Amino acid sequence: MTSGKLRKKEGFHGQKAIVIPRKILVQKEAGSKLLSSLFITDIGYYPKAKFHYRERPNGADQHILIYCVEGKGWARICKKEYDIRPGDFFIVPASCEHIYSADETDPWTIYWVHFKGITSDEIVELFLDQLNGNKSFVHYTDERTRMFNNIYSHLEKGYGTENLWFANTSFGSYLASFLARESPTETTKKNNIIGSSIEFMTKHTDQLLTVEEIAQSVNLSVSHFTALFKKKTGYSPIEYYNHLKVQKACQYLMFTDLRVKEISYKLGINDPYYFSRMFTKLMGMSPNIYREKKKQ
Rank of each mutant, 00 (worst) to 15 (best):
I91A: 10
W165C: 10
F90G: 05
D106T: 12
Q296C: 00
A17S: 08
L244F: 15
E104R: 08
S286M: 10
H224A: 05
S177Q: 15
Y53C: 06
R76G: 01
Y111F: 04
D206G: 11
R76V: 11
G4N: 12
G234Y: 13
L253F: 15
F166S: 07
K245H: 12
D106Y: 00
N163D: 14
A17Y: 08
S120I: 13
S264C: 01
F200Q: 02
L155Q: 10
I24M: 10
V246L: 07
P272E: 11
T205C: 04
D106P: 02
W112G: 03
H114D: 12
G234T: 04
K266I: 08
Y111E: 01
G117E: 02
N134H: 15
S223W: 05
N192Y: 05
N150P: 07
R181N: 11
R259N: 11
Q15Y: 01
T145K: 14
K28E: 13
P57T: 03
D129R: 14
K8F: 05
P287C: 00
Y140H: 03
K28W: 00
P184K: 06
T188G: 09
D129T: 15
G14D: 10
I118P: 06
Y274Q: 05
V92S: 04
K72E: 15
R7A: 01
F200H: 04
F166M: 10
T187Y: 08
Y241D: 03
T105F: 04
S197F: 03
H52D: 12
I40F: 01
S120H: 09
C250P: 10
T185Y: 12
E104Q: 10
K294P: 00
G117C: 02
V92Y: 09
W74G: 10
Y240M: 03
W112H: 07
Q251C: 11
Y274C: 01
T185D: 03
I40W: 02
Q216C: 04
A75R: 04
I18E: 15
Q296N: 05
F255I: 09
E81G: 11
T161M: 09
G11I: 05
N270L: 10
G59N: 02
I84D: 00
V26I: 14
K5S: 15
S177M: 14
F148T: 10
M283F: 03
F255W: 04
V218H: 04
Y45G: 12
G11Y: 01
R7Y: 02
H13P: 05
L25R: 03
Y100V: 00
K293T: 13
E55D: 09
F255D: 06
H224K: 12
N242W: 10
F229D: 00
V124L: 07
V69C: 05
H139M: 06
N134T: 13
T141C: 02
Y240Q: 01
N150I: 15
C96T: 04
Y265V: 06
L175K: 08
R259Q: 13
W112Y: 08
I20M: 13
I193R: 00
Y241G: 02
K50C: 09
E122P: 12
Y53A: 03
G31T: 12
H154L: 13
F279G: 06
I118G: 04
L209Q: 06
I43S: 11
R146C: 15
Y140W: 02
F148Y: 14
F171H: 12
S183Q: 11
Y46N: 10
T105M: 11
H13L: 10
E262Q: 09
F90W: 06
S286Y: 03
I118T: 15
I263W: 06
Y241F: 09
F148G: 14
G59P: 04
Y53N: 15
T161V: 13
G11K: 06
N219V: 07
